[in-house]
Write a protein that binds this DNA or RNA. Structure first.
Lengths: 222, 222
DNA sequence: TAAAATATTTAGGTAAGCCTAATTTTCGTT
DNA sequence: AACGAAAATTAGGCTTACCTAAATATTTTA
């Protein structure tokens, strides 16, 4: 029951979680692309995970996969590790938010539960990582995300940035320069209906942001 | 040339380093015992390391192994990771010195050079880990250890504890209780020639220590 | 110095996790 | 509804890093 999952399996589960968060099943091809592994290899591993005891995924030939309760728990454990690590690397070692991902990607598989507890406690049990991604709770539930995309706001609305759903380093550095990071308050000044550009104020700076950006920034109105 | 060594290989090199520090060669059996791997497996891996390019070990059938310059560098890198991690886990996460080993054992193989540099800098480039073991320098040289075993001291000599060469958790906790940890000043009061017991003062406590302990504590006279 | 004990190596196998090439299934069109 | 494209699977192989059993080399000891 309390088998230790290989790093490889942990990675599969994490990526399946991400592909199925919306309720859909994860296709072999999508998984293969995300894991950077050939589709036949993915088929093989998925079959193995489905016939494991306890089964970690639900799988029917040609129908894609979803996580079982067990698989989901394991996935959330890895994601919790990853996000706590990102937060911690930023807070205690001065990593910037565009640098942490790779490091956390390797560490997430090898830290102990003790280590997990210690860094969580040291940071005061944070609920979001540096990108604003929600951190699964200690009992492995994913909190609900009550944010809306910035793109949905209109002039005169004010909000606090909660999450920035980007992984590209260049984009992250650009957004940081603009001050568009979690925790920051913004105000929408103008909306341009044709291209959906938003003009927003951050501190004393004003910027025009296109949809490709405003769709990736999630806020809480206030 | 700059191949990444597998975790398994890193472990072999680290253990070979430790077995050959005294200048001897490491026997297959000794290595097998230390790595908790069967002797035939060790023979196989050692042959592989010897014919790698560049060779990581020097090996002649039935003659044991030693590290090549390349192998030694790789070993010192792993050891540097391990010891920096131990220091850092103790300093920033409140691990005690008997708990850190296992965690560092897993992390040492996956941290980046960037991570290594950051924790070294954050701690002010320490030269010893929490046990007092010397940390290989950034350019991968092992500093000379200019300490002597406590067992060599005689009454009226005073010294500072520099290193405690023990890995058993129970012993470490016991020594910590007695205050016998690196950095502490001690004074030798009595020497008992038959059993080699030493009576020493630590702070305002006095203890009688047997040879099995005084041989594991290394000090600098002063 | 020869036999016994010990250490080491060789031989042959296994499991995990990946790959490419070939085949089959499903999907999107017309 | 059938055909071509796309997706997925099966078949067959490879590498890494282990294992046990058997064979051989070395060392110890009588």
């Amino acid at each position: 029951m309390e088998q230790t999952l290989t790093i490889s399996i942990q990675d599969y589960l994490k990526h399946i979680y991400e592909l199925t968060e919306n309720g859909e099943t994860a296709s072999t091809n999508a998984l293969a692309k995300k894991l950077n592994i050939s589709p036949p290899s993915v088929t093989g591993m998925v079959q193995k995970l489905a016939s494991a005891n306890p089964a970690l995924v639900e799988y029917q030939k040609h129908q894609g996969v979803t996580l079982t309760r067990e698989g989901k728990k394991a996935a959330l454990e890895v994601i919790r590790h990853h996000r706590l690590l990102e937060a911690w690397l930023v807070q205690t070692l001065g990593y910037s938010w565009d640098e942490v991902h790779e490091e956390a990607e390797r560490l997430e598989h090898v830290i102990s539960e003790d280590f997990e507890r210690r860094i969580a406690a040291a940071m005061g049990h944070p609920t979001r990582d540096p990108h604003g991604e929600l951190i699964p709770t200690e009992d492995l539930k994913m909190p609900l995300d009550d944010t809306t995309p910035l793109s949905a706001l209109r002039p005169n609305q004010t909000a606090t940035i909660k999450r920035v759903a980007a992984s590209d380093s260049k984009l992250l550095r650009y957004l940081e320069e603009l001050g568009l990071v979690p925790g920051v308050r913004i105000e929408v000044n103008e909306y341009s209906p044709f291209d959906h550009n938003l003009t927003i104020t951050v501190g004393r700076k004003t910027n025009v942001l296109g949809l490709s950006i405003t769709n990736k920034i999630f806020v809480q109105e206030s």
